[in-house]
């Protein structure tokens, strides 16, 4: 195939779609009106918005939100893989533990879990390491010093995330043809090796799109940590607004940064989809192909 034109090439005049244009114009117009109404509203003080948009404290809080998201997502995903493997294993104890865990953490509101971890110090005032039911205690510390609000928040978010992501990972593993594990077995690969090198890389293709969703949910759910006084973006902006009473303006500031962060954090997804899609779609095969070709060998 080439760009050369042949006499019998189909050079058709494209079908017209007038309603697409009409609907687009109407929608753009409505959107413009809405933005204008906000902008022109005497109830929103633009100076306050622009003043706090790049305020140092707000930016730092946005940074904390990203850190919380990434750390909780990382821990949550690792736990999720372990839970998914447990749920798929033939060991009845592991299966039951995983099912119980998933049931519990999906069955209670995230807000409740965040508050629970924040209040851990009320249930267990101290954390002791020693032999139970004896006086042997090697290490003891006040719970509030170990489970600071930040630690409690990260634990709450990751444990909850693990329960949801476990089902995503499990679905991904199940989506891989059983012949793959069989071929791996027949070559003498153990189950751990098979999972790591053969099954999970193929499962990733199915796992990544819903995990992108989870990532964005997580970013927004960090705002729940406001209730245990973690100074993330939402907590910081509402703290500021409680002082200057510019609630709407600071909501606009927070909303702006959330939107920026979710947009930026969506980019790695397409990279990962390409990476794990290799061998599956023609487009990614091509890029890999060229790369291999240039290197000369494998």
């Amino acid at each position: 195939m080439s760009d050369k034109q042949n006499s019998d090439d189909v050079v058709a005049i494209p079908l017209r779609h007038p309603w697409r244009w009409v609907s687009a114009v109407v929608l753009v117009g409505l959107l413009g009106l809405f933005v204008y109404s906000l902008w022109a509203s005497p109830n929103i003080n633009h100076e306050i918005v622009t003043k706090f948009l790049f305020n140092g404290k707000v930016i730092a809080a946005a940074g904390l939100t990203v850190t919380l998201t990434v750390v909780s997502m990382l821990i949550g995903t690792i736990l999720a893989i372990i839970l998914a493997i447990m749920k798929l294993s033939t060991n009845p104890v592991l299966k039951l533990v995983a099912a119980g865990y998933i049931g519990f953490f999906r069955g209670t509101p995230l807000l409740l879990q965040v508050v629970f971890w924040g209040y851990l110090g009320i249930i267990y005032p101290t954390i002791d390491v020693g032999i139970p039911f004896t006086d042997m205690i090697w290490w003891s510390e006040k719970t509030s010093l170990v489970f600071t609000s930040l630690v409690a928040g990260i634990i709450a978010l990751s444990l909850n995330e693990a329960a949801y992501a476990a089902e995503i990972v499990r679905a991904g593993i199940l989506s891989v043809d059983s012949g793959q594990a069989e071929a791996a077995k027949s070559l003498g690969m153990g189950s751990g090796y098979t999972l790591r090198r053969i099954v999970l890389p193929q499962a990733m293709r199915v796992i990544i799109p819903p995990m992108g969703n989870e990532f964005i949910s997580m970013l927004k759910n960090t705002s729940l940590l406001q209730v245990v006084a973690v100074m993330e973006l939402y907590a910081r902006t509402s703290q500021i607004s409680s002082q200057n009473l510019a609630q709407v303006e600071l909501l606009v500031v927070a909303g702006f940064w959330y939107l920026i962060m979710t947009t930026v954090l969506s980019f790695p997804q397409s990279y990962l989809e390409k990476k794990y899609g290799r061998g599956f779609s023609v487009a990614t095969q091509k890029s890999r192909w060229l790369r291999v070709g240039m290197k000369g060998n494998v």
Binding site: G179, E182, K185, P201, Q202, V298
Partner: peptide
């Protein structure tokens, strides 16, 4: 068992090549 299997080659009806590898 894996050690025993590693000494026996098997070819499947549906090939079962690993699609993510060249």
């Amino acid at each position: 068992i894996a050690k025993q299997r590693s000494e026996i080659g098997m070819v499947f009806q549906r090939f079962n090549l690993f699609p993510h590898l060249t």
